[in-house]
């Protein structure tokens, strides 16, 4: 943390660089960035409303925010794989705490997804979520974000150490998308829900957000416990990363 504070201005500049590279450099890019989840949500919600016979508006809003939570996880993890190779020209020429690069990349993606989430804010009056459930969802989304950040730190290190991580991660992310409750509701899993939450905190976070938006009671205690536990455990990654990253980056 002290290094992040010391290098905060570099972090700020790298953050804006990364944000621009995600959102784009022109008006067309900005529009495409905001429309991407809208169109994807339309397709998924249409299919879901036909299959599950649910209200299409509710399906649309939940899919929209479900996708954003998923992207928060998938995009940040995917970006962290190549973070050091992307910034090779910097880290081989000047000393910079490596965590700065992961931090800027991660938070730039979080900011880009937050902008997309804000663009969907006008849906909220339609579904009318309760304030309390929304507050709970916000807390767990923050915990999920912290978990993703620590995970990205770990993945960035592993990707540097083992080249196969890129292929493995891409395959896992592709597979995981179909197990995430973006396109279905978790209650269809029946008794398996408990185990599902225990091992899949991102699924848990998506479920909590969906419950909040649809005004369902937040009775998924296991989901909350899963996110909190994984988040706490993920802090073990940081000291390991700090200890080993400088030596590993030399191999780049």
């Amino acid at each position: 943390m002290s290094e992040i504070i010391r290098y905060r201005f570099v972090l700020e500049r790298l953050f804006f660089r990364d944000l621009k590279s995600i959102i784009g450099y022109g008006v067309g890019d900005y529009i495409a960035h905001f429309l991407k989840p809208f169109f994807l949500a339309i397709i998924i919600a249409f299919v879901r409303s036909k299959v599950s016979k649910v209200d299409i508006i509710s399906a649309y809003v939940t899919v929209y925010y479900g996708i954003l939570v998923w992207w928060l996880f998938a995009d940040t993890v995917k970006a962290s794989i190549g973070i050091f190779r992307k910034n090779r020209s910097i880290i081989t020429k000047i000393y910079l705490p490596k965590i700065i690069l992961v931090t800027s990349s991660f938070w730039a993606r979080v900011a880009a997804i937050s902008l997309q989430a804000m663009a969907g804010v006008f849906f909220l009056p339609i579904v009318r979520p309760e304030f309390m459930t929304l507050a709970i969802a916000s807390i767990f989304t923050v915990l999920c974000t912290i978990l993703c950040f620590n995970l990205c730190i770990g993945i960035s290190y592993l990707a540097l150490r083992f080249r196969a991580i890129r292929t493995i991660t891409e395959f896992l992310l592709f597979s995981l998308f179909f197990t995430m409750p973006v396109t279905f509701d978790t209650y269809v899993l029946g008794q398996n829900q408990t185990l599902y939450y225990a091992i899949n905190p991102i699924g848990a976070a998506i479920d909590i957000v969906k419950n909040a938006l649809l005004g369902r009671p937040q009775d998924n205690f296991i989901a909350a416990l899963s996110i909190t536990s994984w988040c706490a455990l993920s802090f073990l990654i940081v000291p390991f990363f700090q200890k080993n990253i400088d030596r590993t980056v030399e191999t780049i």
Partner: peptide, 10 residues
């Protein structure tokens, strides 16, 4: 260190 001009130029 100034090992290269334009370090990090995008």
């Amino acid at each position: 260190s100034l090992l290269e001009v334009g370090t990090g130029f995008d």
